[in-house]
Each structure stands twice: as structure tokens, then as C-alpha cells.
Amino acid sequence: MSTHSAPGTPHYYVPRPTHYPVTLSGALFLLALGFILKINAYAPGPWFMLAAAALILYVLFGWFGAIIRESATRAYGDWEDRSFRHGMVWFIASEVAFFAAFFGALFYVRIISVPDLLSLLDSHGWTLYPEYQGLSWPQSGAGPKAMEFTPMGAWGIPALNTALLLSSGATVTWAHWGLLRDNRRQLILGLALTILLGFSFLGFQAWEYHHAYSELGLTLGAGVYGATFFMLTGFHGFHVTLGAIMLTVIFIRCLKGHFDAGNHFAFEGVAWYWHFVDVVWLLLFVFVYWL
């Protein structure tokens, strides 16, 4: 299979056979199996997960390594590049849908289920929770499971984190400009700043969680408030972590001078991803912390 476009007719690059995908699938299987065994208290679980983690790392390095080599040897032209961009866009779209599910849950409990529970007596002349009343939000429910907690305020750490993440969005764009007009200093500096901001965001987030658990009595088990709070911010935090790691990789590749103004899909892909977690955070700040 010839990998280089013959002059004249454009040739789309079709990679050689590779074992990385199937290996990764095997790893995911082990991971799932291990996790299932673990949460059901079967001993070997963690070992499976460990093996899976190792495999996954191996694949990540091998697979991305191959891709980087290909792009270094200019196996890709604009045609392939366009595929990657489209692909990244639709991948991010699916991520949006994933977060939509959790936001949907948040709105549902705030607008429908908790108000219903509070108004059982009025609407049916019968209630299952005689001494249950109070605000419809924040709420941890009516049953024996309901617990005392203080909701997380918006204007402390969260506000600070908003500032951090927004400015990180700016710096990464600034770095991109640098790349576009071959200003290496600006590129490196911009990326370095972005990564710094990203990780400090995570630092504060971790601190906030500790604060929630140790002082506010706000835990994953604190009714629907705790559940939606931690699942939404948690998944976001997880995505920020991924984003920060990807940024770091890109940073190293910039130091190695992998990119130029014309060819830097990897950089843009990561930048888009970063903006995406940015936007999600804004929604979180408004609907989880503030309102």
C-alpha cells in the first residue's frame, strides 16, 4: 500500500494494519471486569484493573507514537487533516450530550421531583413524609437518608476557579496566535501558562471537595444535591484532568518543534477540547453553584 500521494491524483492515506485497537479493547474488557469484581467485593478485581491500566498506557504511547511519526513524515495532507478536524468536532459533540444527561438530571430534580415530594399532601391529601417540609432547593430528600449539609457557595473557590479557567482559555488562544505567526516564545509561554492555570484549577477543586466533606457535610450521599453536585463537578474535573494532560503532551511536542503554522491539528484539537471544558464549567458555575 503506497502511503504517499502520487503526483496529480490525490491519495487518501490508509494506515497499515495495527494491533493497538484490539489490544485497547482487551484492556477495556479487563478494566470493566476488574471494576465489576471489585465493587462486588471479589478479590482479583484490582489486579485485573492494574493489568488493564498497564496495557492502556502501552497502547496510548504506541498508538499516538505511530500517529506522531506519521504526521512527522507528512503522511497526511490537508485532506486527512480535514477528517481529523471533523472527527474531533463530533467527538466533542458526543461529550456535550454526555454532560447534557447530568444537567438534565439536575433540572429534573430541581423542577419536578423535589417539588412533587414537597407537595404530596396538597396534591393527593396523603403524604408519605409527614414531617417533611422546606426549600425545594438545595435538598437532600425526605426519607431516613436525608442528611444535614451546607450547600457550596458560589463566590469563594468556584468564582476563583471560573477566573482561572477563563483566563486559561485566553492564554491557549494567545499561544495559538503565536503558533500561527511562528512566534515560538509566545507559543511556549502561552501553553505553559495554560497548563499552570489548568492544574491550579484542579488543585482548588480538590481542596473544595475536601472542604465539602470535612466541614460542610456535603458528600456524594447527601441526597440529590450531593449526587448532582459531585457527579457534575466530578466529571468536569475529570475532563479538565484529561485536557491538562493532553496540553502537557502538546507542550512537549511544541518544545520538540513538531508544529508549524500550516500543520498542527493535534494542537487545535486539544485547544478545542479545552474550550469545551471551559464552557461546561460556565454552565456548572451558574446552575450548580450560583442559582
Binding site: 421531583s113 423535589v114 425526605a142 426519607g143 450521599g221 440529590v224 449526587a227
Partner: peptide, 10 residues
Amino acid sequence: THFFNAAGGG
């Protein structure tokens, strides 16, 4: 968590 459990407001 209590997404689907009324006792927790779900």
C-alpha cells in the same frame, strides 16, 4: 447517590 431514590429527593 440518590438519583432514582425518593428518600434522597430523586
